[in-house]
Design a protein around this nucleic acid. Structure first.
Lengths: 295, 295
DNA sequence: TCATACCTATTGGAAAATACGATGAATCAT
DNA sequence: ATGATTCATCGTATTTTCCAATAGGTATGA
């Protein structure tokens, strides 16, 4: 069953004539004639009585028309569906993030621009996110870490200094900036091995020849924060992730360039997928200060 | 929305793979790939996740698949419908006849051969039948008269002698055959002007130089039959149309070849329409004595 | 770890479907 | 009649669809 023929038949039946059908389908009238005729000949069935310049459905034609109408309507439905997805009026973007900090800005901007697209956020560590990218359970992920995997594409998003934060009773509490050497032997509360912030910090102090005293390694940002608030030691954190607390003060590091870079990641082969590209484009805009728009 | 693409998409989703889909659709695998890809690119939507050698529907793909399945199923329904009509498992043939006499043989043969085709019979005179053929309200008509209209096609079916019939008390009642000349001055009960039987008879007696005495002209076969039974006059009838009656006898005409010919008629342009052609073919077979079939 | 089997993607060129334009024939309204 | 409208026909041209060969990738088993 040729679909072009069915489509022509339907238009003729619906519009009540071959010429009218040809206008609706944006083709020439001879095309309609030949399509309908081919359909009739293929099944050896009369679909229309040609009564002069008027056409009239036969019994078989009438029955076919009812079916054809449902097909055409479903096709319109399919087209709407695809347009909705292609036009961001529908769809679902799964976003992964190592913490809500970097992602929130992007998420709110994205949902504002594309209100029709549902968003869901999965929080987990970098390795989990990499896995989820690879098995399609997240579409994009905002990570500090850059995966060493050619299948994953990463775009740098923002660079945030790593700061030290201390309890208000600590000797650093009144300072704005300290030097790395001053931290020699300081008791420190750290994140688990593999934390990007920890890695950046440890690399810096190693290069500076400074040794610190890790008193605790905790697998959660909030737990570290709490431990520092209780005065167990000093902590390090990406400044954007720091949550203010009456008992806590942040201190910049004066003599080293310690930072983490948030990246937006996705599966490399899905880089051009509509929703993913939209997310990256939007992240790109957030990253660079927007130019003034002249109307 | 290109239907070939949708069809390819559906097959991939239903079969779970591009290669499997290509086998179902009897096309090459590259065709499927390009069709699905074109569909995805046209709407800028991902329909499948290509996970190595496995494919998996995306959210949009899943929704599209549900619609596509209904479309495909409706197309199968349409195809079945058309096949049924083309294969005589469905359909409706409107048959017209001037009297039930000639038509019954054909009707019973037709309904026996094509049990799936509904038949309806309209009885009326030749002129009415011609009109009904022209306005599509009958498909074929069995008439004695041959319409003088190029739009109507007629096939001779059977030739029946016109016989005289008389009351049992008439002087012809004991005869098997009479000559035309013997009818000179006989009172006759005739059909209305325009009756084919009447026309054939009048032509014959005019050629023979015989004059008759029309005492009554009645617009119905049955009424003529009744009038003759009451002894009002003698009648003429096509032998196949004669209905026996205890008071009536038929008498052949010895010296003239008076006959009517039943024709099967249809709209010339519909001559090749499936059901109509089938009816004509069957009539053709009934007309000619069937050959012995060797198994 | 290598080989094998199976799958999807790509490309260039051939085949087929589809469309167009001009024209003819029939019908309807004026 | 006449002009306008409509469906049918024919030959040609364009677009779509398809295939064959081939590449690249991923599982499975020896």
């Amino acid at each position: 069953m040729n679909h072009t023929q069915l489509r022509s038949f339907h238009a003729v039946a619906a519009e009540g004539g071959f010429t009218a059908a040809s206008r609706v389908l944006n083709v020439g009238q001879p095309t309609i004639t030949s399509q309908v005729k081919a359909l009739e000949r293929h099944f050896d069935v009369e679909l229309f009585h040609r009564r002069g310049r008027r056409v009239e459905l036969t019994e078989a034609g009438g029955k076919l028309f009812r079916i054809a109408q449902r097909i055409v309507s479903l096709e319109a439905e399919a087209e709407d569906l695809l347009n909705a997805y292609g036009g961001f009026q529908a769809g679902h973007l799964h976003v992964g993030a190592v913490g809500p900090y970097h992602a929130t800005e992007m998420l709110s901007a994205f949902s504002k621009r594309y209100p029709g697209v549902r968003l869901s956020v999965t929080v987990g560590n970098s390795m989990e996110m990499a896995e989820r990218i690879l098995d399609y359970s997240v579409d994009v992920a905002v990570l500090a870490h850059v995966e060493d995997d050619p299948r994953i594409y990463a775009m740098p998003y923002s660079r945030h200094p790593v700061v030290v934060f201390v309890n208000k009773s600590h000797r650093f509490a009144k300072r704005r900036r300290i030097r790395l050497a001053e931290m020699e032997g300081e008791p420190m509360v750290l994140r688990e091995v593999g934390s990007t912030t920890r890695l950046a910090f440890e690399t810096a102090i190693r290069e500076a020849g400074v040794t610190i005293e890790p008193v605790m390694a905790i697998g959660s940002r909030e737990a570290v924060w709490l431990a520092v608030a209780r005065g167990i030691g000093i902590g390090v954190v990406s400044d954007i992730e720091f949550i203010p607390h009456p008992d806590l003060h942040t201190v910049e590091v004066a003599d080293a360039d310690i930072y983490t870079t948030a990246h937006v990641n996705c599966l490399a082969e899905r880089r051009e997928s509509r929703l993913i590209r939209a997310f990256f484009d939007m992240a790109e805009e957030l990253k660079t200060p927007r130019n003034v728009t002249f109307i």
